[in-house]
Design a protein around this nucleic acid. Structure first.
Length: 589
RNA sequence: GGUUCGAUAGCUCAACUGGAUAGAGCAUCAGAUUUCUAAUCUGACGGUUCAGGGUUCGAGUCCCUGUCGAAUCACCA
């Protein structure tokens, strides 16, 4: 039993004994005692005043006295205003440590039997991944891990937007000026190569628009009628008609991109249980549109386009099929959602998608509802904030996009330089060192991104490299390496004993004991940031403890064994919590 | 213009869902290595929580009003 459960139960009994009232949950409010006061758990008595009919101080004192007299594990209590601070006994904390240490998989909550699908990454196949995708990928991955730890059955899925006008643009540009180039010939990852041709398309498009306006056409008409754009649109129609040549080229270029993506995913340590392709689901989307038309949920306009009128729900009209019959983003998302539900009957479906698409998901849920799919309530849009640069949004036009592969490379290099400067890696092979540099570089990057509350916009300054000191991934990795180094050297076995605990040790155990609550809290909030900050608190507390406490040199065998058990448990919890974030911890660094 | 979200130390972020004197890191300054890892630790400095009202024992947190910022409302995805 954790400290909070213990005190809550005691308080319920006290209220029953003193006032003859069965306290409802919201009457018993506990919280960790603040550092400046003595105690472990604080009972807030304000909600109880109506029951006790006494002053806050008198109520707190009365309950404190009753608990001290009637419960075994209370060391002392004190009252400050309406706050009852209770200090638990040393024995309580040694027992707690013992229980945590002997739990086979501490941090893993019991199975719930619920199936949760998490969609994340969802790249377009016309350009390489950038920093925004990195946040998406790390968030999606860690939320999946987090929900697994909460006992759910998690299915990680990716949806590749492999068809659409965007990829047609890259194809057209490649046909016009690619001269048969391949990733091998160019010596470049496939996703980067295709990205180059997407940029090329926009350059050509701009040139054509300029020519047309120079010839007297209005800006608006020129933008609509530029030949290269017409060509791309015609290609999309051909694609939907299944034209063999278009399909062959499309497949070839997409495969280049996938090879590139796979490398980036591997570097980030990310994988999926299943990958969906828009090219496979858009047809189901189109058939849903037909169904909706029959049901009268949608309407066909004179120009043959299909719309859903949401004005009665306070939204706008939404396009579902273009006048040329091709589908849009929403069309395929409808199809994807339905096929997934039919296959998995998920209890919850989380979409990890940026907050720029809040409107899209509002509409998606609403349209599914209108089509009669009641499970649309199970859809949850995990809407995360954008990553911004000091000068604002990343813009490919201005070349400010932070490329994912470049960033990973840079983190690796920085880790390498720092490690070499510190020079603590004697005896390691080059291969081991290399692995370590990558682990540290990625640790810094991942922690930097995940520690921020997902829904907040975050800032990344490319000019200042991501820190390796302070509240960072490497700080926690370093803490772990320190602990492992002691444990490697230890002669005796970590063991629970009845040796007396230092105050710092009790507070460390307190943090360890709160871990399952943190997992639960973070799961409900869909926020791995809570886990990141927890791990930091634990690591920081350990480093303070470590600074002024002897462990291996402690002469008393019982104390030494218990300290070893404590730090070993800390290492385990750090490993588990950082594992949720996808960050590995080294044996030494 | 409508809708949604945000604003906390110079900078980047916390604050256990309404609790006590709003906390960390970075940066700046001053310290700690014959000792189990100094990628660490100890101090100092740093705040009208955007502004103004309201709700109550108590508000960074909830409710109005305003200011500023972002996203979105596409035959883009």
């Amino acid at each position: 039993m954790g400290p909070f459960e213990y005190i809550t139960a005691a308080a319920v009994n006290a209220v029953k004994a003193l006032y003859n009232v069965d306290a409802a949950d919201n009457l018993i409010q506990t919280q960790p005692t603040r550092k400046e006061f003595e105690g472990d758990v604080t009972l807030v008595t304000f909600p109880l005043l109506r029951t006790s009919h006494k002053s806050p101080e008198a109520t707190a004192t009365e309950i404190g006295q009753w608990i001290k007299d009637n419960c075994g594990e209370i060391a002392s209590f004190n009252v400050v205003k309406g706050f009852l601070n209770i200090k638990l006994s040393g024995a309580f904390w040694s027992d707690t440590l013992k229980n945590i240490a002997s739990a086979p998989n501490y941090g893993q909550l019991p199975e719930t039997g619920k199936t949760v699908m998490v969609e994340f990454s969802s790249p377009n196949t016309n350009k390489p991944l950038h920093l925004g995708h990195v946040r998406n990928n790390l968030l999606g991955w860690s939320v999946s891990q987090l929900l697994s730890a909460n006992g759910h059955n998690v299915i990680k899925v990716n949806l590749v937007n492999d068809r659409g006008i965007h990829i047609c643009k890259s194809m057209i540009a490649w046909l016009r000026c690619g001269d048969g180039i391949t990733p091998e010939k160019a010596g470049k990852k496939g996703d980067h190569l295709i990205g180059d041709y997407y940029v090329k398309f926009n350059d050509l498009y701009k040139e054509e628009v300029a020519e047309l306006t120079a010839a007297g056409m209005s800006q608006e008409d020129a933008e609509k009628n530029a030949p290269i754009l017409k060509e791309a649109q015609a290609m999309l129609v051909k694609w939907e008609q299944g034209d063999p040549q278009v399909r062959a080229l499309w497949k070839k270029m997409n495969d280049w991109v996938y090879a590139g993506f796979d490398q980036t995913y591997a570097a980030l340590g990310i994988s999926f249980d299943k990958t969906y392709y828009e090219s496979n689901t858009y047809l189901l989307g189109k058939s849903l549109v037909e169904e909706g038309l029959k049901k009268g949920v949608f309407e066909r306009h004179d120009d043959n386009s299909v719309w859903c009128d949401l004005t009665a729900d306070g939204l706008d009209k939404k396009l579902l099929l273009r006048s040329d019959g091709t589908s849009v983003y929403m069309t395929q998302d409808l199809g994807t959602a339905v096929s997934r539900y039919n296959e998995y009957h998920f209890d919850e479906h989380i979409y990890v998608v940026g907050n720029e698409q809040n409107y899209h998901f509002q509409v998606l849920k609403l349209i599914l509802k209108k089509l009669g799919f009641d499970w649309s309530d199970a859809i949850y849009h995990l809407s995360y904030g954008m990553v911004e640069l000091p000068e604002g949004k990343m813009k490919s036009r201005e070349g400010t996009v932070v490329d994912a592969d470049d960033l990973i490379e840079k983190m690796y290099t920085t880790a390498k330089e720092t490690s070499q400067e510190l020079g603590k890696l004697e005896g390691m092979t080059e291969e081991e060192k290399d692995e370590l540099y990558m682990m540290l570089g990625l640790g810094a990057l991942k922690y930097f991104i995940i520690k921020v509350d997902p829904k907040k916009t975050m800032l990344f300054d490319p000019k200042e490299s991501i820190d390796f000191n302070g509240n960072t991934g490497p700080f926690i990795q370093y803490t772990h390496a320190r602990i492992r180094s002691i444990l490697r050297r230890a002669q005796d076995k970590p063991q629970s004993t009845d040796a007396e605990l230092l105050p710092k040790e009790e507070s460390l155990i307190k943090i360890l004991a709160s871990y399952p609550d943190k997992i639960r809290e973070a799961g409900i909030a869909h926020s791995p940031a809570i886990i990141a900050n927890y791990a930091y608190d634990l690591a920081k507390e350990f480093n303070q403890y470590y600074h002024d406490t002897q462990i291996l040199k402690e002469p008393d065998t019982a104390i030494r064994a218990q300290r070893l058990l404590l730090i070993e448990t800390i290492a385990r919890v750090l490993t588990h919590s950082m594992g949720i974030l996808g960050i590995s911890l080294p044996e030494r660094m």
